[in-house]
Simulated assay, not measured.
Amino acid sequence: MDMNAPEQPRNNSTSTVILEANKSTGEQPMELFIVDEHTEHYLALQAGGDFDRGLLTGVLGGMGGCAMIGLGLIGALQGKFDITYMTFSIGIPLLLVPFLWETLRPLPLPILFNRRTREVYFDHNGELFHSPWDGISAVANEFQLVGPQIGAMQSASLEVRVRKFKQPDTALMISLGAPFGKSMAMQKGFWEYIRAYMNNGPYFDEHGNHSESDAFVKSQLAVRPKMSDSFRRTRKQIKQAKQEAGGKNYLSGHHVIKLLVEPILYPQDRIQELTYGIAKRRSRNRWPSLVTDRLKANGPTTRLVDLE
């Protein structure tokens, strides 16, 4: 058995629920900051950590490197090329070294739900595991984490079983996201999100029914906004506050601080997102052709279990 999240102590009142692909839990679909890609053909869930990939490049390159390069450009405009040489020799390595280190290291491959072939893929240390979607079931466990600092914190895990390709006797239970801070209702809602995608997708409404519009899906994915969009969101909040206040005393100190700080942090956030995106695209090449071919619009429709 393999768990993406470390095993946690559970109390005696642990409750376990079996969730099935063809049965509704009664909850509305809910995305829990786990979906990395929601496309017409496959759903990718982040797995294995490294969610902050690109942060080092953003901090060193966005804050330090870009600042030094900017100073160098100012020096060049003033004809002070000695300053330009010095700042470029510091700023460029501050940007390139962490960028190369974070993009050349492969990201953990995501958990893939393929709508076309109706199956699940998972990579474990370079070995391919899979499961047909039809007939699949998930195990949801609700428990409490108890500690002197956190007190009693309710948590719930959500796991599915996959089997090794061409070795079906070898199976893993994989966690669909970390259980910390999640309730049973939240995990049921996330299972409904996956069910709606696989059974009625690629787009669906708040009840999980098929929809030609992607409005509900976008609203769910927008709950985790990009950090680089923070300045735009602040301006939108200020505009709304101005309308509500009739133009009188609408600008708070909190808004002023955000207007000053967020533009400074924009290069860091933008570079972090760019670095993560490049690392993710490079990591896709690690999937075997059996998987990548089936993710294409015109790829094979046979399931891996059929090949076995």
Rank of each mutant, 00 (worst) to 15 (best):
H41G: 07
H41I: 10
H41F: 10
Y42R: 03
L43H: 04
Q46N: 13
Q46C: 10
D50M: 08
D50N: 12
D50F: 06
G54V: 10
G54H: 08
L55M: 14
L55F: 11
T57K: 10
T57E: 06
T57H: 12
T57N: 09
G58H: 05
G58M: 03
V59N: 00
V59P: 01
L60F: 12
G61K: 05
G62W: 06
G62D: 09
G64A: 11
G64V: 05
G64W: 03
G65S: 08
A67Y: 01
M68Y: 03
M68Q: 07
I69F: 00
L71T: 06
L71C: 07
L73T: 04
L73E: 00
I74M: 02
I74H: 11
G75Y: 01
G75W: 02
Q78G: 01
Q78L: 07
G79K: 04
K80F: 06
F81Y: 12
I83K: 04
I83D: 06
T84A: 00
T87I: 08
F88H: 03
F88K: 06
F88I: 05
G91S: 09
I92F: 01
P93K: 04
L94Y: 04
V97E: 11
V97G: 06
P98R: 01
E102D: 12
T103F: 08
T103E: 09
L104F: 12
R105Y: 11
P106H: 05
L107Y: 01
L107V: 02
I111F: 02
I111C: 06
F113H: 00
R115A: 13
R116M: 06
R116Q: 12
T117W: 00
T117A: 02
E119I: 07
Y121A: 01
F122W: 13
H124K: 12
N125E: 14
N125T: 13
G126M: 10
G126T: 11
G126C: 11
G126S: 12
E127I: 14
E127M: 09
L128G: 08
L128P: 03
F129D: 00
H130K: 01
W133P: 00
D134V: 05
D134Y: 09
S137P: 13
A138I: 08
V139W: 11
V139F: 11
A140E: 10
N141L: 13
N141D: 13
E142L: 13
E142Y: 11
Q144H: 14
Q144L: 15
Q144W: 13
L145I: 13
L145V: 13
L145Q: 14
L145S: 15
L145E: 12
V146A: 15
G147N: 15
P148S: 14
P148K: 14
P148G: 12
P148D: 15
Q149I: 15
I150Y: 13
I150S: 15
I150M: 13
S155C: 15
S155P: 15
A156F: 08
S157R: 10
S157I: 09
E159G: 11
E159H: 12
V160Q: 01
R161E: 11
V162P: 06
V162M: 13
V162T: 11
R163V: 00
K164S: 01
K164C: 07
F165N: 07
K166I: 09
Q167C: 00
P168W: 05
P168T: 02
P168C: 02
P168G: 02
D169Y: 07
T170N: 08
A171K: 14
L172K: 03
M173K: 14
M173H: 14
M173D: 15
I174P: 05
